[in-house]
Design a protein around this nucleic acid. Structure first.
Lengths: 118, 118
DNA sequence: CAGGATCCTGTAGGATACTG
DNA sequence: CAGTATCCTACAGGATCCTG
């Protein structure tokens, strides 16, 4: 019973360890949405810098979260595609998007309530 | 269409903003599991320091993620309980626990495969 | 286009000790 | 028990410029 909770806690922390950076999940989401090129991914995530995107992609490639393919024509073409492993994070992302939307609604309602009461 | 993706990205980032720290989700999970007292929560999350737990709980109280109740007998008794808002993160946590378990299995399989091939 | 190289800063988070 | 107070630092992440 408690055994089980400890196990769940560790599973939770493992996941946090893998996806717990500011940009990791947004990048995965972007690639899962079909963005493939570096600049394309970059533009799809306002605020990210080339440095962070580069770093994240490199680490994600090592961890088999994305596949990097180079088509050595010139100009050089590079494509990042999601692996099955990456796609398996879909439910996590979906849950977070859903919560984020609810959250926003809640914030807006609260703001309205405050305005009308003042 | 793209409009929609931008909206989902923002929802995702909002959620990350709220739960994206090393301890936030483990704490929520602990409280949702019924832990109420400070030391109880602390003990349920190996590695966390009193300082971090204290800071997180304080901020979570401000954000209405937990309710803090003081029973002013002596010795003083304090209880933290989850709000509905807090509980609404259940699906996010569940998805992450599930992924973490799969992830562990994957790591173990990989390790075994490497051992047998060497 | 796809990044690498540098420089810089805040702050998340750790360690330790103390209090009512 | 339920925290607060200090001190400390590694590193995530930003800004900017550069290259093949």
């Amino acid at each position: 019973m408690l055994r089980n909770q400890q196990e769940e806690l560790r599973a939770l922390q493992d996941t946090i360890y893998v996806v717990g950076s500011k940009w990791r999940l947004p990048i995965i989401n972007s690639i899962c949405n079909g963005n493939k090129r570096f600049r394309e991914i970059e533009r799809s995530i306002p605020g990210i810098t080339t440095r962070m995107l580069s770093r994240e992609l490199k680490e994600m490639e090592l961890n088999k979260l994305v596949k990097r393919t180079v088509y050595a024509d010139s100009p050089v073409l590079v494509e990042y595609t999601s692996t099955g492993y990456c796609k398996s994070l879909g439910p996590v992302i979906a849950a977070m998007i859903k919560w984020g939307k609810q959250h926003k609604k809640k914030i807006l309602e609260k703001r309205n309530a405050e305005e009308t009461s003042e």
